[in-house]
Structures are given as C-alpha cells and as structure tokens.
Amino acid sequence: MRIGLITPEPGHPLLADTTALLAPEHTVEALDPVTLGEVPLPPADVYLLKSRTPHALGLARHLERQGAPVVNSAAATALCQDRTEMAELALRAGLPFAPTRTHGSLSTWAAEARLDAPVVVKSRRSRRGDLVARVDDAARLRELAREWPHEPVVVQDHAPNNGWDHKLWAIGDQVFSALRRSELSPGGRGPTRPLPAAELPPGWAGLVREVGTVFALDVYGVDIIDTGGGTPLIVDVNAFPGIRGQAGAPEALAALALRRAAERTRGAAEQ
C-alpha cells in the first residue's frame, strides 16, 4: 500500500512512529502542503491529513476530487476549526456540549457586555496561539479587548469543575485518555497525567465515539470537563490532534490507514 502524509512535520512523534510500523511493508510519502509542487501520481491508497492550514485543506480537497480517501476529510477538518459551527452541530445532535454564543469582534462585545458570572472567551477560529481565557470581571474583559480588539470570539459560561481537563482521543474505535490541568485554572496549564480508558466514568468512551460519528471524524480529540458526579461537558473537538505519549496510538493509526486503503482498493475493484 501507498500511504501519504499531508503535513509539514512528518517527524511528529505520532506520525514518525506510525511510519516506522508501516515502512517495512508499505510505502509512506510525506507531502508538505506549502512546498509541494505537483502531487505524485497515481494518488496514494490513503492520505492522513495532519495539518489544518489553508494549503493543507486545499491539497486534501484536490486529492478527494481525484477519488483518494483522506483521513480526516477536508470538510470535517475545516468544520472543527469553526467553534460556532462545532457547537451548533454538537447541540443539534444532542451532545452535552457547552452552550456557545458568538460575537463578531471582542472589542464590540466587551463594550456592551454585562458579566454576572465567569465566562470562557475563545477565538471563533481554532488555531495555534488562539485566544482561550477565563474572564471573571469587566477589568479582565477590557484587558483582553485591548489585546484582541478585532478577534471574532465565542463565549461559554464557565462550568464549575475540579480544574482538570479530560483529554480524550480516538483513532477509529479505539479511545485513549489522559488528565491535564486546565489552562483556565489559577495556576495555568499543568502536566499531563496518564488515565487508563478503563478508569473513565461510565459512558464517556461511548460518548467520544458518538462525537466521531456526528463530526465524521476518524482521528480526533474531545476535551471534556467533569461538572460533578461524572457528568460530562464537552468544550472542544479537534481533528487529528497529536496524541503524544499514548501507548498503542501509532499501532491504531497504522491499522486505520491500512483499513481505509484496503476499502478504497476493494471499491475500485468492484467498479
């Protein structure tokens, strides 16, 4: 099989370990969406989209038009970059997602906002270095508005929790998990702690898989906070996150890539 990696960082630990598993029997080709000239032909049997830049999404869409399977699809990846669309889809599907309000610019909203309780303010567009902050009072809101005046934002009520984010990841049907001190906690983001999936509250692994179905994702992350007694609240969904340090993740990704490639080969043979 030929497996293509759409990424400027093929040395990322998850991709590098997956490549090492595949390379003895299969061909793995890295395609940097920025520097790539022409796409190698014929298309690979499957592509793994580990980038969310416009160049990467454009390349993925081009390959999909050629009939090549891309994991995750360009459409699913792009949807997870828009936190407004993400929340709308999740809530329509009945997922326990944080209610989300959208504002065209932070400065405009800050000028008229009346805070009765803490809120979480996030950039509407999810990206590296985006805005994610807890706001407890008008002074903090004005400070953020000076730093990010024109930023389109979403606002979520701050849900009481123990200060730990449950970082859940899925590759196909396999769920991985860890605990990470929330970046919104008073001490800021802390280290990641291992959390065996078997120790998740009942129903959480199934909830993660349901997110994958709703968002049409094969490789994804779900950020959940426990609002008390194991009651989950989803606060974010990410397409193809790093999934670093999770035993079995490279093996799961290699198996998924080969499965998708085999499905494409069988489909072509039946036509």
Rank of each mutant, 00 (worst) to 15 (best):
R2S: 13
L5E: 10
I6H: 04
P8E: 14
P8N: 14
T18P: 03
T18M: 09
T18L: 06
A20C: 12
T27C: 12
D32A: 07
V34Y: 14
E38D: 13
L41D: 13
P42N: 06
D45I: 05
V46E: 06
T53L: 05
Q66R: 14
A68D: 10
V70E: 01
T77V: 05
L79Y: 01
L79R: 09
C80Y: 00
D82T: 03
L91D: 04
A98P: 04
S105C: 09
L106I: 06
S126K: 14
D130R: 07
A133W: 07
R140E: 15
L141K: 00
W148L: 07
W148A: 05
H150T: 15
V154N: 06
V155I: 13
Q156G: 02
G163A: 13
W164E: 15
D165M: 09
K167S: 03
A170V: 07
A170C: 08
Q174F: 05
P194L: 10
A205C: 05
A205Y: 04
G206S: 09
L207A: 02
R209G: 09
E210K: 11
Y220G: 01
D223V: 01
D223K: 03
D223G: 02
I225N: 04
G229M: 00
N238P: 03
A239L: 01
P241T: 01
G245P: 02
P250N: 03
E251D: 15
A257W: 08
E270H: 11
